[in-house]
Computed example of a mutant assay.
Amino acid sequence: MNADLIIILVLVVLNIPVYRFLYRLFFADDDDYEQSVKYVFTPNFVSFFRGEYWKDKIDSARVKFYILFCAMAIVLEYVLLSKVIHYFRS
């Protein structure tokens, strides 16, 4: 396996507490999360006719931002860690 892939996999596992922290910031409880995920997979026109268009947009955005922030944490840590490793190798 490539060393970079191993580093990324280790970061994914070590960041589980970060994911949980972000989860608590974005969602009130498990039901809130499940409803938000439901809106991600519900077409907008269906939500529009149900009268839930803006709730759909907001909840979909929360899920997307949660995923984005989790991914950004891994990318930022990987960049910093690779710079530290490069510094000590040279």
Results as ranks from 00 to 15, higher is better:
A3N: 14
A3E: 15
L5T: 09
L5R: 14
I6T: 13
I7Q: 12
I7Y: 12
I8G: 06
L9F: 11
V10I: 12
L11F: 12
L11G: 07
V12I: 13
V12S: 04
V13N: 12
L14P: 08
L14K: 13
L14I: 10
L14C: 12
N15G: 11
I16K: 14
P17K: 08
P17V: 07
V18E: 08
Y19D: 09
Y19I: 13
Y19F: 14
Y19W: 09
R20C: 10
F21D: 09
F21C: 09
F21I: 07
L22G: 06
R24F: 03
R24L: 07
R24I: 01
R24Q: 05
L25M: 10
F26A: 08
F27Y: 02
F27L: 08
A28R: 14
A28K: 14
A28W: 13
A28Q: 12
D29Y: 15
D29S: 15
D30V: 14
D31E: 13
D31A: 15
D31I: 07
D31S: 15
D32L: 07
D32S: 11
Y33D: 04
E34R: 15
E34A: 15
E34T: 14
Q35H: 15
Q35T: 15
Q35G: 13
Q35E: 15
Q35M: 15
S36Q: 05
S36T: 04
S36E: 05
V37D: 07
Y39H: 12
F41P: 01
T42V: 07
P43I: 01
N44V: 08
F45A: 04
F45P: 06
F45V: 02
V46Q: 04
S47Q: 02
S47R: 04
F48C: 03
F49G: 01
F49R: 01
G51Y: 00
G51K: 01
E52M: 00
Y53R: 00
Y53F: 05
Y53T: 02
Y53A: 03
W54P: 00
K55C: 04
D56P: 00
D56W: 09
D56H: 11
D56A: 11
K57M: 06
K57V: 08
K57D: 04
I58P: 03
I58A: 03
I58Q: 04
D59P: 00
S60G: 06
S60D: 00
S60F: 02
S60R: 10
A61G: 06
A61Q: 00
A61H: 06
R62Q: 04
R62T: 03
V63L: 02
V63H: 04
V63W: 00
K64Y: 03
F65C: 07
L68K: 08
L68A: 11
L68R: 05
F69T: 05
F69W: 10
F69D: 01
F69P: 03
C70Q: 03
C70T: 02
A71K: 06
A71T: 11
M72F: 13
M72Y: 09
A73S: 10
I74L: 07
V75M: 06
L76F: 04
L76G: 07
E77N: 01
Y78C: 02
V79L: 08
V79R: 04
L80Y: 10
L80V: 11
L80H: 09
L81V: 12
K83I: 08
K83F: 11
K83A: 12
K83S: 10
V84G: 01
I85W: 06
I85H: 04
H86E: 13
H86T: 13
Y87A: 10
Y87W: 13
Y87P: 05
F88P: 05
F88C: 08
R89Q: 11
R89Y: 14
S90G: 11
S90Q: 06
S90W: 11
